[in-house]
Design a binder for these strands. Structure first.
Length: 115
RNA sequence: UGAGUAAGUCGGACAGUCGCGUGGGUCUUCCCACGAGGAAAGUCCGGGCUCCACAGAGCAAGGGUGCCGGAUAACGUCCGGUGGAGGCGACUCUAAGGAAAGUGCAACAGAAAGCAAACCGCCUGAUUUAUCAGGUAAGGGUGAAACGGCGAGGUAAGAGCUCACCGGCGGUGUGGAGACAUACCGGCCUUGUAAACCCCACCCGGAGCAAGAUCAAGAAGGACCGCAAAAGGCGGCUGCUCGCUGCCGGUCCGUAAGGUAGAUCGCUUGAGCCCUUUGGCAACGAUGGGCCUAGAUAGAUGGCUGUCUGAGACAGAACCCGGCUUACAGACUUGCUCACAUC
RNA sequence: GCCCCAGUAGCUCAGGGGAUAGAGCGUCGGUUUCCUAAACCGUGCGUCGGAUGUUCGAAUCAUCUCUGGGGUG
Protein backbone atom coordinates (compact mmCIF):
# COMPACT_ATOMS: atom_id res chain seq x y z
CA UNK A 1 0.00 0.00 0.00
CA UNK A 2 1.15 3.53 -0.71
CA UNK A 3 1.89 5.58 2.37
CA UNK A 4 -0.06 8.86 2.48
CA UNK A 5 2.73 10.92 4.04
CA UNK A 6 4.95 10.86 0.95
CA UNK A 7 4.79 13.46 -1.82
CA UNK A 8 4.32 11.90 -5.24
CA UNK A 9 2.53 13.89 -7.88
CA UNK A 10 4.27 16.30 -10.16
CA UNK A 11 1.59 18.89 -9.43
CA UNK A 12 2.40 18.95 -5.72
CA UNK A 13 6.06 19.47 -6.45
CA UNK A 14 5.59 22.34 -8.89
CA UNK A 15 3.11 24.00 -6.51
CA UNK A 16 5.55 23.83 -3.64
CA UNK A 17 8.44 25.09 -5.76
CA UNK A 18 6.43 27.98 -7.19
CA UNK A 19 4.20 29.04 -4.29
CA UNK A 20 6.00 27.70 -1.23
CA UNK A 21 8.85 29.15 0.76
CA UNK A 22 12.46 28.05 0.55
CA UNK A 23 15.54 28.31 2.72
CA UNK A 24 18.97 26.79 2.55
CA UNK A 25 21.55 25.64 5.02
CA UNK A 26 25.05 24.23 4.75
CA UNK A 27 24.05 20.74 3.61
CA UNK A 28 20.33 20.88 2.76
CA UNK A 29 17.70 23.06 1.10
CA UNK A 30 14.10 23.02 2.37
CA UNK A 31 10.94 23.94 0.46
CA UNK A 32 7.66 23.99 2.40
CA UNK A 33 3.97 24.99 2.04
CA UNK A 34 0.66 24.60 3.85
CA UNK A 35 -1.29 21.55 2.69
CA UNK A 36 -4.57 21.91 4.68
CA UNK A 37 -4.27 18.34 5.97
CA UNK A 38 -3.82 17.19 9.54
CA UNK A 39 -0.50 15.46 8.82
CA UNK A 40 2.83 16.31 7.19
CA UNK A 41 3.91 15.07 3.80
CA UNK A 42 7.60 14.89 2.95
CA UNK A 43 9.99 14.16 0.10
CA UNK A 44 13.76 13.65 0.14
CA UNK A 45 15.69 14.45 -3.02
CA UNK A 46 19.28 14.12 -4.15
CA UNK A 47 20.04 15.22 -7.70
CA UNK A 48 22.81 13.96 -9.96
CA UNK A 49 24.95 16.85 -8.79
CA UNK A 50 25.39 15.04 -5.49
CA UNK A 51 27.12 12.09 -7.15
CA UNK A 52 26.49 8.57 -8.33
CA UNK A 53 23.73 6.41 -6.96
CA UNK A 54 25.71 5.34 -3.91
CA UNK A 55 26.26 8.94 -2.83
CA UNK A 56 22.66 9.89 -3.59
CA UNK A 57 21.26 6.97 -1.60
CA UNK A 58 23.57 7.77 1.29
CA UNK A 59 22.45 11.40 1.26
CA UNK A 60 18.78 10.48 1.25
CA UNK A 61 19.25 8.02 4.10
CA UNK A 62 21.04 10.59 6.20
CA UNK A 63 18.25 13.10 5.58
CA UNK A 64 15.55 10.54 6.33
CA UNK A 65 17.24 9.49 9.55
CA UNK A 66 17.65 13.13 10.59
CA UNK A 67 14.01 13.87 9.86
CA UNK A 68 12.91 10.73 11.71
CA UNK A 69 14.50 11.98 14.92
CA UNK A 70 13.01 15.46 14.48
CA UNK A 71 9.60 14.29 13.32
CA UNK A 72 7.81 14.61 16.64
CA UNK A 73 8.83 18.24 16.96
CA UNK A 74 7.47 19.26 13.55
CA UNK A 75 4.12 21.06 13.38
CA UNK A 76 1.59 19.11 11.28
CA UNK A 77 -0.22 20.29 8.17
CA UNK A 78 2.65 21.12 5.84
CA UNK A 79 4.33 19.71 2.75
CA UNK A 80 8.12 19.66 3.08
CA UNK A 81 10.72 18.92 0.40
CA UNK A 82 14.25 18.36 1.62
CA UNK A 83 16.98 18.51 -1.01
CA UNK A 84 20.61 17.53 -0.61
CA UNK A 85 23.37 19.92 -1.65
CA UNK A 86 26.56 18.50 -3.08
CA UNK A 87 28.45 19.46 0.07
CA UNK A 88 26.66 16.63 1.87
CA UNK A 89 29.24 14.11 0.69
CA UNK A 90 31.77 15.32 3.26
CA UNK A 91 29.23 15.45 6.06
CA UNK A 92 28.66 13.11 8.99
CA UNK A 93 25.21 12.23 10.26
CA UNK A 94 25.38 14.64 13.21
CA UNK A 95 26.28 17.56 10.97
CA UNK A 96 23.37 16.80 8.62
CA UNK A 97 20.96 16.60 11.52
CA UNK A 98 22.21 19.87 12.94
CA UNK A 99 21.90 21.54 9.55
CA UNK A 100 18.36 20.25 9.05
CA UNK A 101 17.34 21.36 12.54
CA UNK A 102 18.62 24.87 11.98
CA UNK A 103 16.82 25.09 8.63
CA UNK A 104 13.53 23.90 10.11
CA UNK A 105 13.91 26.28 13.03
CA UNK A 106 14.46 29.26 10.80
CA UNK A 107 11.41 28.26 8.76
CA UNK A 108 9.36 28.14 12.01
CA UNK A 109 8.29 24.59 11.25
CA UNK A 110 9.08 23.22 14.71
CA UNK A 111 6.80 23.37 17.71
CA UNK A 112 7.56 26.14 20.15
CA UNK A 113 8.06 23.83 23.13
CA UNK A 114 11.63 22.80 22.30
CA UNK A 115 14.50 25.24 21.93
C1' U B 1 65.37 -15.91 0.09
C1' G B 2 64.34 -12.65 -3.97
C1' A B 3 62.11 -11.69 -8.72
C1' G B 4 58.28 -13.26 -11.85
C1' U B 5 54.08 -15.91 -13.99
C1' A B 6 49.19 -18.32 -14.04
C1' A B 7 44.61 -19.62 -11.61
C1' G B 8 41.28 -18.74 -7.64
C1' U B 9 38.86 -16.90 -2.85
C1' C B 10 37.33 -12.85 0.42
C1' G B 11 35.60 -7.72 -0.10
C1' G B 12 35.59 -5.76 7.58
C1' A B 13 33.45 -9.16 11.48
C1' C B 14 30.59 -9.87 16.01
C1' A B 15 27.12 -8.18 19.95
C1' G B 16 23.37 -4.70 21.77
C1' U B 17 19.79 -0.96 20.62
C1' C B 18 16.46 2.67 17.66
C1' G B 19 14.46 2.54 12.62
C1' C B 20 13.29 0.69 6.98
C1' G B 21 11.15 -3.20 2.93
C1' U B 22 8.85 -8.09 2.03
C1' G B 23 6.64 -12.62 3.83
C1' G B 24 4.48 -15.28 7.93
C1' G B 25 2.24 -15.74 12.85
C1' U B 26 -2.11 -16.24 18.20
C1' C B 27 -1.95 -9.67 12.02
C1' U B 28 -4.10 -5.94 19.63
C1' U B 29 1.39 -2.32 16.38
C1' C B 30 3.65 -7.46 19.40
C1' C B 31 6.89 -11.56 17.69
C1' C B 32 9.74 -14.49 13.98
C1' A B 33 12.41 -15.13 9.23
C1' C B 34 14.81 -13.03 5.08
C1' G B 35 16.75 -8.55 2.79
C1' A B 36 22.11 -5.79 -3.11
C1' G B 37 27.22 -7.02 -6.33
C1' G B 38 31.68 -9.24 -8.25
C1' A B 39 31.23 -6.11 -11.05
C1' A B 40 24.36 -4.80 -9.38
C1' A B 41 28.18 -0.29 -13.73
C1' G B 42 28.97 0.58 -19.29
C1' U B 43 24.68 -1.03 -22.48
C1' C B 44 28.97 -3.84 -26.33
C1' C B 45 26.93 -8.91 -27.96
C1' G B 46 23.70 -13.49 -27.35
C1' G B 47 19.04 -15.74 -25.63
C1' G B 48 14.24 -16.36 -22.83
C1' C B 49 9.47 -13.69 -22.38
C1' U B 50 5.63 -10.13 -24.57
C1' C B 51 3.27 -7.43 -28.52
C1' C B 52 3.37 -6.10 -33.85
C1' A B 53 4.33 -7.89 -39.02
C1' C B 54 4.60 -12.21 -42.28
C1' A B 55 1.86 -16.89 -41.38
C1' G B 56 5.58 -20.39 -47.77
C1' A B 57 10.30 -20.11 -48.94
C1' G B 58 13.78 -17.63 -51.93
C1' C B 59 16.27 -13.14 -53.73
C1' A B 60 17.85 -8.11 -53.00
C1' A B 61 19.11 -4.05 -49.63
C1' G B 62 21.26 -3.05 -44.84
C1' G B 63 24.07 -4.86 -40.67
C1' G B 64 27.33 -8.39 -38.36
C1' U B 65 31.03 -12.41 -37.96
C1' G B 66 35.73 -14.30 -40.30
C1' C B 67 42.57 -19.86 -39.10
C1' C B 68 40.69 -25.23 -37.52
C1' G B 69 37.90 -28.57 -34.35
C1' G B 70 34.76 -28.81 -30.22
C1' A B 71 31.37 -26.78 -26.03
C1' U B 72 26.63 -24.28 -25.63
C1' A B 73 19.78 -22.59 -25.74
C1' A B 74 22.77 -19.04 -28.34
C1' C B 75 26.94 -15.77 -29.00
C1' G B 76 31.32 -11.45 -31.39
C1' U B 77 31.76 -16.02 -25.47
C1' C B 78 34.52 -20.36 -23.62
C1' C B 79 37.93 -24.79 -24.28
C1' G B 80 41.67 -27.43 -27.08
C1' G B 81 44.84 -26.99 -31.26
C1' U B 82 47.47 -24.57 -35.96
C1' G B 83 50.24 -20.35 -37.93
C1' G B 84 52.53 -15.58 -36.42
C1' A B 85 54.78 -11.98 -32.54
C1' G B 86 57.25 -11.27 -27.62
C1' G B 87 60.02 -13.36 -23.31
C1' C B 88 66.34 -16.90 -20.75
C1' G B 89 61.89 -19.32 -18.93
C1' A B 90 57.05 -20.39 -16.57
C1' C B 91 53.94 -18.06 -19.94
C1' U B 92 51.50 -14.07 -22.63
C1' C B 93 49.37 -11.60 -26.98
C1' U B 94 47.11 -12.33 -31.80
C1' A B 95 39.93 -8.45 -36.23
C1' A B 96 44.53 -14.52 -38.37
C1' G B 97 39.53 -15.71 -45.14
C1' G B 98 40.65 -13.67 -50.28
C1' A B 99 45.50 -8.74 -53.20
C1' A B 100 46.42 -14.78 -59.22
C1' A B 101 37.85 -11.48 -59.86
C1' G B 102 37.81 -6.24 -60.41
C1' U B 103 38.33 -0.84 -58.87
C1' G B 104 40.85 2.82 -55.94
C1' C B 105 45.05 4.85 -53.07
C1' A B 106 50.62 4.96 -52.17
C1' A B 107 51.83 12.48 -50.04
C1' C B 108 57.12 14.35 -50.04
C1' A B 109 61.54 12.50 -52.12
C1' G B 110 63.05 9.74 -56.31
C1' A B 111 64.71 8.32 -63.21
C1' A B 112 60.82 5.03 -61.95
C1' A B 113 55.48 3.43 -56.95
C1' G B 114 53.21 -1.41 -60.42
C1' C B 115 54.40 -2.65 -65.46
C1' A B 116 57.04 -1.54 -67.54
C1' A B 117 60.78 1.72 -67.80
C1' A B 118 66.43 3.80 -66.73
C1' C B 119 69.02 9.59 -63.47
C1' C B 120 74.22 8.72 -62.12
C1' G B 121 76.91 4.44 -63.33
C1' C B 122 79.20 -0.14 -66.01
C1' C B 123 80.28 -2.24 -71.03
C1' U B 124 80.50 -2.24 -76.65
C1' G B 125 80.52 0.64 -81.19
C1' A B 126 80.79 5.40 -83.76
C1' U B 127 83.31 9.80 -83.57
C1' U B 128 83.47 16.14 -83.49
C1' U B 129 86.61 13.91 -76.94
C1' A B 130 82.24 15.39 -75.71
C1' U B 131 78.14 13.57 -77.26
C1' C B 132 75.22 9.85 -79.97
C1' A B 133 73.43 4.65 -80.78
C1' G B 134 73.01 -0.04 -78.47
C1' G B 135 73.54 -3.61 -74.26
C1' U B 136 72.86 -4.05 -68.80
C1' A B 137 70.14 -3.60 -63.94
C1' A B 138 75.55 -5.76 -60.33
C1' G B 139 76.83 -0.74 -57.70
C1' G B 140 75.11 4.64 -56.13
C1' G B 141 71.25 7.77 -54.54
C1' U B 142 65.55 8.55 -52.83
C1' G B 143 61.92 6.45 -49.96
C1' A B 144 57.99 3.13 -45.26
C1' A B 145 58.34 0.16 -49.64
C1' A B 146 62.41 -0.34 -55.78
C1' C B 147 60.24 -6.54 -58.46
C1' G B 148 63.18 -12.65 -54.42
C1' G B 149 67.95 -12.79 -50.46
C1' C B 150 73.11 -14.34 -50.10
C1' G B 151 77.43 -16.72 -52.19
C1' A B 152 79.83 -19.06 -56.40
C1' G B 153 80.17 -19.84 -61.62
C1' G B 154 79.60 -17.08 -65.94
C1' U B 155 80.26 -12.45 -69.07
C1' A B 156 82.49 -7.12 -73.07
C1' A B 157 79.71 -5.47 -68.77
C1' G B 158 75.83 -7.96 -66.60
C1' A B 159 71.39 -10.61 -65.48
C1' G B 160 67.80 -17.13 -61.97
C1' C B 161 71.55 -16.97 -67.44
C1' U B 162 73.36 -21.61 -64.43
C1' C B 163 74.21 -23.92 -59.45
C1' A B 164 74.07 -24.61 -53.70
C1' C B 165 71.37 -22.85 -49.35
C1' C B 166 67.17 -19.91 -47.70
C1' G B 167 62.15 -17.49 -48.68
C1' G B 168 57.68 -17.66 -51.65
C1' C B 169 54.25 -20.08 -55.42
C1' G B 170 52.19 -24.57 -57.90
C1' G B 171 51.84 -30.04 -58.18
C1' U B 172 52.28 -35.02 -56.05
C1' G B 173 53.00 -38.33 -51.86
C1' U B 174 52.78 -39.13 -46.46
C1' G B 175 50.71 -37.84 -41.39
C1' G B 176 46.32 -35.46 -39.22
C1' A B 177 39.15 -35.02 -38.17
C1' G B 178 40.88 -30.22 -39.84
C1' A B 179 43.72 -25.62 -39.71
C1' C B 180 48.41 -27.34 -41.03
C1' A B 181 53.15 -30.00 -40.95
C1' U B 182 56.69 -32.62 -43.79
C1' A B 183 59.39 -34.99 -48.20
C1' C B 184 60.17 -34.81 -53.40
C1' C B 185 59.50 -32.42 -58.16
C1' G B 186 58.69 -28.01 -61.19
C1' G B 187 59.04 -23.25 -63.65
C1' C B 188 62.40 -19.72 -61.54
C1' C B 189 58.60 -15.88 -58.88
C1' U B 190 53.55 -12.57 -58.81
C1' U B 191 54.83 -4.63 -54.02
C1' G B 192 51.76 -2.94 -49.98
C1' U B 193 46.86 -1.70 -48.40
C1' A B 194 40.45 -5.20 -47.61
C1' A B 195 40.02 -1.58 -39.10
C1' A B 196 39.67 1.50 -48.61
C1' C B 197 35.48 -0.08 -51.96
C1' C B 198 34.87 -5.04 -52.71
C1' C B 199 34.67 -10.82 -53.41
C1' C B 200 33.65 -15.49 -50.80
C1' A B 201 31.37 -18.34 -46.65
C1' C B 202 28.00 -18.17 -42.57
C1' C B 203 24.27 -15.45 -39.39
C1' C B 204 20.25 -11.68 -38.64
C1' G B 205 12.03 -9.55 -39.25
C1' G B 206 10.85 -5.08 -35.76
C1' A B 207 10.17 -3.13 -31.01
C1' G B 208 10.98 -3.59 -25.99
C1' C B 209 8.48 -5.18 -18.96
C1' A B 210 7.14 2.38 -19.03
C1' A B 211 6.66 -4.80 -23.37
C1' G B 212 2.02 -6.61 -22.44
C1' A B 213 -2.60 -8.67 -19.75
C1' U B 214 -6.89 -8.07 -16.31
C1' C B 215 -10.25 -4.93 -13.30
C1' A B 216 -12.05 -0.14 -13.69
C1' A B 217 -13.95 5.80 -10.77
C1' G B 218 -15.75 10.27 -12.46
C1' A B 219 -20.46 16.38 -11.94
C1' A B 220 -15.43 13.41 -18.36
C1' G B 221 -16.87 12.62 -23.58
C1' G B 222 -19.49 9.64 -27.26
C1' A B 223 -23.18 5.19 -28.96
C1' C B 224 -27.87 2.56 -28.27
C1' C B 225 -32.71 1.20 -25.97
C1' G B 226 -36.74 2.67 -22.97
C1' C B 227 -39.72 6.06 -19.99
C1' A B 228 -41.60 10.72 -18.46
C1' A B 229 -42.82 15.44 -19.52
C1' A B 230 -41.96 21.86 -18.83
C1' A B 231 -39.89 25.21 -22.50
C1' G B 232 -37.62 25.61 -27.60
C1' G B 233 -36.40 24.67 -33.22
C1' C B 234 -37.84 22.29 -38.04
C1' G B 235 -41.60 19.47 -40.70
C1' G B 236 -46.58 16.83 -41.73
C1' C B 237 -52.24 16.47 -41.32
C1' U B 238 -55.10 22.01 -43.99
C1' G B 239 -54.63 28.46 -45.93
C1' C B 240 -54.72 30.32 -40.28
C1' U B 241 -55.48 29.04 -34.84
C1' C B 242 -56.17 24.98 -31.49
C1' G B 243 -55.23 19.84 -31.40
C1' C B 244 -52.60 15.34 -32.92
C1' U B 245 -48.01 13.59 -34.66
C1' G B 246 -42.47 12.79 -36.68
C1' C B 247 -37.36 14.42 -36.03
C1' C B 248 -33.76 17.38 -33.38
C1' G B 249 -32.70 19.20 -28.63
C1' G B 250 -32.76 18.89 -23.10
C1' U B 251 -33.49 16.05 -18.13
C1' C B 252 -33.61 11.19 -15.67
C1' C B 253 -32.94 5.82 -15.55
C1' G B 254 -30.73 1.64 -17.93
C1' U B 255 -27.53 -1.41 -21.46
C1' A B 256 -23.17 -2.80 -23.89
C1' A B 257 -18.33 -1.25 -25.50
C1' G B 258 -13.73 1.44 -25.54
C1' G B 259 -10.79 3.29 -21.91
C1' U B 260 -8.04 8.05 -18.72
C1' A B 261 -6.74 8.51 -13.29
C1' G B 262 -5.95 4.43 -10.27
C1' A B 263 -5.41 -0.80 -8.79
C1' U B 264 -3.78 -5.90 -9.68
C1' C B 265 -0.83 -9.27 -12.50
C1' G B 266 3.71 -9.63 -15.33
C1' C B 267 7.69 -10.14 -10.58
C1' U B 268 10.84 -14.04 -9.45
C1' U B 269 11.69 -21.69 -9.35
C1' G B 270 15.58 -20.46 -12.81
C1' A B 271 19.44 -22.92 -19.52
C1' G B 272 19.06 -21.91 -10.66
C1' C B 273 22.73 -23.02 -6.46
C1' C B 274 25.57 -26.77 -3.38
C1' C B 275 27.52 -31.77 -2.71
C1' U B 276 28.64 -37.06 -4.44
C1' U B 277 29.85 -40.40 -8.41
C1' U B 278 31.20 -40.49 -13.42
C1' G B 279 32.61 -39.48 -19.23
C1' G B 280 36.00 -35.91 -21.46
C1' C B 281 43.07 -33.10 -22.03
C1' A B 282 39.47 -29.10 -21.28
C1' A B 283 35.13 -25.93 -22.03
C1' C B 284 31.18 -28.94 -20.69
C1' G B 285 27.86 -33.22 -20.27
C1' A B 286 25.36 -37.30 -17.43
C1' U B 287 23.64 -39.79 -12.67
C1' G B 288 21.98 -39.44 -7.54
C1' G B 289 20.90 -36.38 -3.26
C1' G B 290 19.92 -31.73 -0.88
C1' C B 291 18.38 -26.35 -0.82
C1' C B 292 14.86 -21.95 -1.85
C1' U B 293 18.30 -17.45 -1.97
C1' A B 294 15.78 -9.31 -2.51
C1' G B 295 11.37 -8.17 -5.27
C1' A B 296 10.80 -2.19 -4.07
C1' U B 297 7.29 1.42 -7.10
C1' A B 298 9.77 8.72 -5.64
C1' G B 299 11.84 3.33 -4.97
C1' A B 300 13.66 -0.79 1.27
C1' U B 301 20.41 -1.83 4.20
C1' G B 302 20.76 3.68 7.91
C1' G B 303 21.88 6.07 13.09
C1' C B 304 24.16 5.22 17.98
C1' U B 305 27.33 2.19 21.56
C1' G B 306 31.15 -1.52 22.51
C1' U B 307 35.14 -5.23 21.15
C1' C B 308 38.66 -7.04 17.60
C1' U B 309 45.52 -6.50 12.90
C1' G B 310 42.22 -0.34 14.14
C1' A B 311 38.38 0.73 10.19
C1' G B 312 39.54 2.23 4.15
C1' A B 313 38.57 -0.07 -2.54
C1' C B 314 35.25 0.19 -6.70
C1' A B 315 30.48 0.75 -6.08
C1' G B 316 23.44 0.21 -5.08
C1' A B 317 18.97 -4.81 -7.88
C1' A B 318 14.29 -2.32 -11.03
C1' C B 319 11.69 -8.46 -16.13
C1' C B 320 15.26 -12.59 -16.00
C1' C B 321 19.58 -15.40 -17.60
C1' G B 322 24.78 -16.42 -20.53
C1' G B 323 29.08 -13.56 -21.78
C1' C B 324 32.33 -9.26 -22.94
C1' U B 325 34.41 -4.59 -21.39
C1' U B 326 35.64 -1.10 -17.71
C1' A B 327 36.55 0.34 -12.08
C1' C B 328 38.63 -1.84 -7.58
C1' A B 329 42.14 -0.31 -0.95
C1' G B 330 43.76 -4.47 1.11
C1' A B 331 44.19 -9.68 2.66
C1' C B 332 44.82 -14.87 1.54
C1' U B 333 45.54 -19.82 -1.09
C1' U B 334 47.68 -23.07 -4.84
C1' G B 335 50.71 -24.56 -9.21
C1' C B 336 54.89 -23.33 -12.16
C1' U B 337 59.59 -20.55 -13.86
C1' C B 338 64.30 -17.96 -13.24
C1' A B 339 68.45 -16.30 -10.09
C1' C B 340 71.30 -16.91 -5.65
C1' A B 341 72.57 -19.63 -1.12
C1' U B 342 72.76 -24.25 1.79
C1' C B 343 72.39 -29.65 2.20
C1' G C 1 14.96 2.29 -18.51
C1' C C 2 15.69 2.70 -23.81
C1' C C 3 17.74 5.45 -28.05
C1' C C 4 20.79 9.22 -30.45
C1' C C 5 24.54 13.17 -31.12
C1' A C 6 28.89 15.99 -30.04
C1' G C 7 34.08 16.77 -28.16
C1' U C 8 39.71 20.61 -32.88
C1' A C 9 43.05 27.91 -30.54
C1' G C 10 40.33 31.91 -24.95
C1' C C 11 35.06 31.72 -27.97
C1' U C 12 32.17 30.14 -32.63
C1' C C 13 33.22 26.62 -36.27
C1' A C 14 36.00 24.24 -41.05
C1' G C 15 38.87 20.07 -42.25
C1' G C 16 36.54 12.67 -43.27
C1' G C 17 44.44 8.95 -44.64
C1' G C 18 50.10 12.53 -46.49
C1' A C 19 49.46 20.61 -44.07
C1' U C 20 54.09 23.29 -39.80
C1' A C 21 45.96 21.45 -38.58
C1' G C 22 42.89 26.52 -40.93
C1' A C 23 38.97 30.91 -40.88
C1' G C 24 36.37 34.73 -38.10
C1' C C 25 36.12 37.17 -33.35
C1' G C 26 39.35 37.83 -29.33
C1' U C 27 44.66 38.39 -26.74
C1' C C 28 49.42 40.78 -27.16
C1' G C 29 52.95 44.18 -29.78
C1' G C 30 53.68 48.03 -33.36
C1' U C 31 52.17 52.24 -37.03
C1' U C 32 48.91 56.53 -36.85
C1' U C 33 47.11 60.28 -32.69
C1' C C 34 48.29 65.23 -27.74
C1' C C 35 45.39 60.66 -25.68
C1' U C 36 41.61 57.00 -26.82
C1' A C 37 38.53 54.60 -30.43
C1' A C 38 38.49 53.13 -35.52
C1' A C 39 41.83 51.58 -39.47
C1' C C 40 46.40 49.08 -41.06
C1' C C 41 50.67 45.72 -40.09
C1' G C 42 52.58 41.86 -37.25
C1' U C 43 52.45 38.09 -33.21
C1' G C 44 51.68 33.79 -30.50
C1' C C 45 47.70 30.78 -28.99
C1' G C 46 46.61 23.34 -30.10
C1' U C 47 49.31 16.38 -26.22
C1' C C 48 42.56 17.55 -32.35
C1' G C 49 38.76 14.69 -24.81
C1' G C 50 41.94 9.99 -23.24
C1' A C 51 44.13 4.91 -24.16
C1' U C 52 45.27 0.92 -27.43
C1' G C 53 45.49 -0.85 -32.30
C1' U C 54 45.40 -0.95 -38.24
C1' U C 55 48.71 1.60 -41.72
C1' C C 56 55.03 3.46 -44.26
C1' G C 57 51.98 7.49 -42.23
C1' A C 58 45.92 8.80 -37.97
C1' A C 59 42.59 14.99 -36.11
C1' U C 60 40.63 11.54 -39.99
C1' C C 61 39.87 4.31 -39.80
C1' A C 62 38.67 0.42 -35.71
C1' U C 63 37.93 -0.98 -30.46
C1' C C 64 37.55 0.52 -25.42
C1' U C 65 36.87 4.67 -22.21
C1' C C 66 35.71 9.78 -20.17
C1' U C 67 32.86 14.23 -20.38
C1' G C 68 28.82 17.12 -22.13
C1' G C 69 24.11 17.65 -24.62
C1' G C 70 19.47 15.92 -26.59
C1' G C 71 15.06 12.67 -27.71
C1' U C 72 11.29 9.19 -25.90
C1' G C 73 7.50 6.85 -22.86
Amino acid sequence: MLRPDVLRSKKDFTDIYNKGKSLGDRYVVVFHRENHLDYTRTAFLASKKVGKSVQRNKARRLMKESYRELKDEVKPGRDIIIIARNTINQAEYRQVKKSLRSALTRGKLLKETKE
